[in-house]
C-alpha cells in the first residue's frame, strides 16, 4: 500500500485535532505517514499521539529555520519527500498556512491541487477528493490529473478515529533556506486562546445574530456556549453591528463550520450565513420571527425570545452536567 503524507499541525508539541482527522482520512487511501516539520525536539513530544491515530511512519524534519521563516521550510521538506517516496497523495490541513503550503507544493511538484476537501476516497487507482462547495450547496468529487495529488482537508470535515500505528521514525533534512526568496519571521504574538474551543475545530458552536441586540447582551450567547463546552460564533449582521469581533464570523465571508451541533440565536439565516454553517450535523434555532429562513434548515426550532429561551437552556444543560 502506498504512503500518504500527512503534514502535522501542532503548536509547541501539542498536536491539533485536524491532524488526527487527516490521519484518519489518509487510512482510506493508503498508509498514513506523518510529516513533522518543526523545532528540534518536537517529534519526541508528538509521536505517541500520531501513533494512536494510525501513523505507520513519522518523518522528522527538525530545525530552528522552521520557526524563523514563513511557510517555505515546510514546502521544501514536503517537496523532497514527494520526490523521494512517491506517495499516493499529500494531505494538508486547510488552515491559512496549510492552504499556502499546499499551493506552493502543487506548483513546485507540478501536481493537481484539491482544496477544502471533506474527505478522500480511492477510486480506480485514483485519489478522489470530496468537496462541499458554495457553502454546502454542491458536493463535488474531483481528482488530480498529474503529479501527486495535494489535498487540503477542512478541519472538522472528517471525524477522527483512533487506530494503532507503528510510527516508525525516519529523519529527513530541512533544506537550507534561499534568503532572497524567503520571508523572515521576526516575531510572533500567538492568540491567547481562552477556555473555549477554536471555532472551526469545535464540535458544538453557539452563534448570535442581529437579534442579540448589543455587544453586552452577547453574554447570553457566551453563557450557553460555556455550558455546552462550545465555541462562540456570530453572523455577519452581528459583526457589522459591532456586537462581536470579526474573527468569530460564520458565513460566506467568514468561517465555514460543520460541527455536530450548531445553535443559532437571533440569526435570520440569510444565504450569506447559511453558507458557513449548513453542513452542520444538527441545527437548532431560536428566533422571534416565525418566518426567519433559518427555520427552513433547522432540525429543531423555537419561535420565541432568545433572552428567555437561551438562559433556560443554559440552566438545563448545567443541571444535566451537574
Amino acid at each position: 500500500m502506498s504512503e500518504v503524507l500527512v503534514l502535522v499541525d501542532e503548536i509547541d508539541g501539542e498536536v491539533k485535532k485536524v491532524t488526527f482527522e487527516l490521519l484518519t482520512a489518509a487510512r482510506e487511501i493508503g498508509e498514513p505517514a506523518a510529516v513533522v516539520v518543526a523545532a528540534p525536539g518536537t517529534a519526541a513530544k508528538v509521536k505517541e499521539s500520531l501513533a494512536a491515530y494510525g501513523a505507520a511512519k513519522v518523518y522528522v524534519a527538525e530545525s530552528d529555520d522552521v520557526a524563523n521563516y514563513l511557510v517555505t521550510p515546510k514546502v521544501d521538506v514536503l517537496a523532497n519527500l514527494v520526490g523521494a517516496k512517491s506517495p499516493a497523495a499529500v494531505l494538508i490541513p486547510a488552515t491559512a498556512e496549510g492552504k499556502e503550503i499546499a499551493g506552493r507544493l502543487a506548483v513546485r511538484t507540478g501536481s493537481g491541487l484539491l482544496i477544502e476537501a471533506i474527505g478522500v476516497e480511492s477510486s480506480g487507482g485514483d485519489v478522489v477528493g470530496v468537496q462541499s462547495i458554495f457553502g454546502g450547496a454542491f458536493t463535488v468529487k474531483a481528482k488530480s490529473t498529474r503529479g501527486t495529488p495535494v489535498v487540503t482537508v477542512r478541519p472538522g470535515g472528517v471525524e477522527a478515529v483512533q487506530a494503532q500505528g507503528a510510527a516508525a521514525e525516519e529523519t529527513v533534512e530541512v533544506p537550507a533556506v534561499d534568503a532572497a526568496k524567503a520571508t523572515t519571521v521576526t516575531g510572533r504574538e500567538p492568540v491567547v486562546g481562552g477556555d473555549r474551543p477554536e471555532l472551526t475545530e469545535a464540535s458544538i458552536v453557539v452563534s448570535g445574530g442581529r437579534g442579540v441586540g448589543s455587544a453586552e447582551k452577547f453574554e447570553v450567547v457566551e453563557k450557553l456556549a460555556d455550558a455546552l463546552g462550545a465555541a462562540v460564533g456570530a453572523s455577519r449582521a452581528a459583526v457589522d453591528s459591532g456586537y462581536y469581533p470579526a474573527q468569530f464570523q460564520v458565513g460566506q465571508t467568514g468561517k465555514t463550520v460543520s460541527p455536530q451541533l450548531y445553535v443559532a440565536l437571533g440569526i435570520s439565516g440569510a444565504i450569506q450565513h447559511r453558507a458557513g454553517m449548513q453542513t452542520s450535523k444538527t441545527i437548532v434555532a431560536v428566533n422571534k420571527d416565525a418566518e426567519a429562513p433559518i427555520f427552513e434548515i433547522a432540525d429543531f426550532g423555537v419561535v420565541g425570545d432568545l433572552f428567555a429561551v437561551a438562559p433556560r437552556l443554559t440552566d438545563e444543560v448545567a443541571k444535566r452536567k451537574g
Binding site: 416565525a290 427555520f295 434548515i297 433547522a298 429543531f300 426550532g301 423555537v302 437552556l313 443554559t314 438545563e316
Partner: peptide, 13 residues
Amino acid sequence: AGQRVEDSGDGGG
C-alpha cells in the same frame, strides 16, 4: 425543516 415549537415559557427545556 424539522420540528418547530412556539416558546410558551419552556422553549429552553
